Computed example of a mutant assay.
Amino acid sequence: MTTIPLAEDLGRARTAADFAAVIALLDVDLNNVAARKQELEQAEDRAIFGDGDLGEVRAALARTNAAIALIEKTIEAAHKRRAAAAQSEARADIVALGEEIAAKAEALTQRWQTANWLIEQLRLELFEADALSRAIATANGRLDAAGAAELKINLTTIRRAAMAGPRAAVPARLSRRAIQADKLLLSFLSPGGALDPRPALGAPVEGVKSKFIPVASERG
């Protein structure tokens, strides 16, 4: 009965890498047997001229040729099984990728839902803050009229103090749309932003008048 070379290794092989390793070993065996064949062919030439047992050499050569044929056939079969394993692994990778992006899509949906909820909460807070700001501004006007300016509330100071604090670090990789959205959100928190319009030139800021007020020129 002819023994298949590296039969146990082939039987244990499951992945494309396993089959590639077995094929490499079979190639080594094939090279060794091919070298043995070359030696036997040289021995056959010598035996023809009486140097050696020609029948024995030719029998050994026949066994070597059979071994080469078997190894080559085994290598061919191993290549087919390796290709099939690689194809199966590729399909498994695609399935795994599909499952991965499905999970990410679910997480993304949750993130957008959270972002939507936070934006709506922000809008509600802005509405409430605006109502309070208008009420305080009205009261400030009455205090001015009553000569009690020292009781007025500085809305800019309140807003800036309330919005001061640490900011989340921007990721190293961020899409252009995300950068634009982040800048828009930060504009609500930054001085001079959407909620903090710059004062008119020369107007007092938090009770301090600018030193760089343009002076009207006098014409002689």
Rank of each mutant, 00 (worst) to 15 (best):
L185K: 05
A102I: 03
P191T: 04
A115I: 11
A96H: 06
E206R: 12
N140K: 08
D51T: 08
D27H: 07
D18T: 06
A85W: 11
I101Q: 11
A7W: 01
K152I: 02
D144V: 10
K211T: 09
I4T: 15
Q113D: 15
A203G: 08
A96C: 05
L70R: 14
K211P: 08
L124E: 15
A146E: 01
A146T: 04
A162Y: 11
S175R: 04
A34V: 10
D144R: 10
A78E: 05
L126R: 12
L184M: 07
L174Y: 01
I119G: 02
L126S: 08
I23W: 05
A145Q: 11
V57M: 03
A178T: 05
S187H: 06
A194P: 00
I179H: 02
N65F: 01
T109V: 02
A149H: 05
D182M: 06
A103T: 14
F49M: 08
M1R: 07
G192N: 02
A145R: 01
A146Y: 03
P214C: 01
T138K: 15
A149G: 04
I158L: 15
F19C: 00
S217V: 09
K104W: 09
N140D: 05
A164C: 01
K104Q: 15
S190D: 08
R46C: 00
A178M: 03
R198Y: 00
R82H: 12
A86W: 02
A137P: 00
R142E: 07
E72N: 15
A69V: 11
N154E: 06
A84N: 05
A62K: 05
L132S: 10
T138N: 14
A77R: 13
